[in-house]
């Protein structure tokens, strides 16, 4: 059976094509201001990669905050929580806790051995608890987002960050720069702050091993280190953490 999962996130659209449990095509596109166009583009690239045409796909399931924008392709939809859980258990059968930090939302999901959702908590509507926080901080610090995490590796000491709001944290970062605080230490403070917020959410569902971290933020070594320190364990990270939601949707489509 050939199925597709489409994950319309706030910032990117991910498409993944699955044939009998094997990934045969995938694509990621920036959502920009037209999620529908991005979805179409991403879908076509994934099809081309798999050497298929649209009619070859038997079922399509969409997920993500903008999933309604994919309605022109996907007749069915599922929640991000269900998709994340399914994708994570497929990659790591030992997973019991899934952490997904997206651009506009952070989630912690507790799952059973079958990938069924037991409990979940979401940080939503406030940018301080999501990837948007790091994006804003990278601008304030004038360090590209991709380099922000690595910068923490050179940090000599932990400096506190008091602001809990992205807008106020931007000013705090500027003040820290003026006070000649090394950028490495500020970067560490930024990652510690977001990790703190994510961990408190994980504790609300009860921490259970193994813990899997998915979403684009999982590629950020600074965040991963802060998270491991706070959770006192090592989170498991898939090779392509940003595709786990789309994978889960494609798996659900195959059922």
């Amino acid at each position: 059976m050939i199925t597709a999962g489409i994950d319309c996130g706030a910032k990117t659209v991910k498409v993944l094509i699955l044939k009998d449990g094997r990934v045969i095509g995938k694509s990621l596109a920036l959502a920009g201001f037209d999620t529908k166009a991005a979805t179409e583009q991403s879908f076509n690239i994934a099809l081309r990669g798999a050497g298929l045409s649209k009619n070859d796909i038997q079922r399509i399931v969409a997920t993500g905050a903008g999933r309604l924008e994919a309605a022109f392709l996907a007749k069915e939809e599922t929640t991000e929580v269900a998709a994340d859980a399914r994708g994570a258990i497929k990659l790591f059968p030992s997973a019991r806790t899934v952490i997904d930090v997206g651009a506009e939302e952070g989630r912690a999901i507790k799952i059973d051995r079958n990938g069924k959702v037991v409990d979940f908590a979401v940080n939503e509507k406030c940018a301080a608890g999501a990837g948007a926080f790091m994006e804003a901080m990278s601008r304030a610090l004038e360090v590209p987002l991709e380099e922000l995490g690595e910068l923490t590796l050179k940090s000599q000491r932990a400096v506190p960050m008091n602001a809990q709001c992205v807008v106020f944290a931007e000013s705090e970062v500027v003040t820290l720069i003026h006070a000649k605080t090394p950028k490495e230490d500020i970067s560490r403070a930024i990652h510690d702050a977001i990790s703190d917020r994510i961990v408190s959410m994980v504790r609300r569902i009860g921490l259970e091993r193994d813990v899997v971290l998915i979403g684009g933020v999982a590629k950020n070594i600074g965040f991963v280190n802060s998270l491991n320190r706070d959770l006192e364990l090592e989170v498991k990270i898939p090779e392509e953490p940003e595709f786990v939601g789309a994978l889960g949707a494609a798996i659900l489509a195959a059922e």
Partner: peptide, 8 residues
């Protein structure tokens, strides 16, 4: 801060 006393 109060999260741990408020499980889901």
């Amino acid at each position: 801060s109060c999260a741990q006393c408020k499980p889901v």
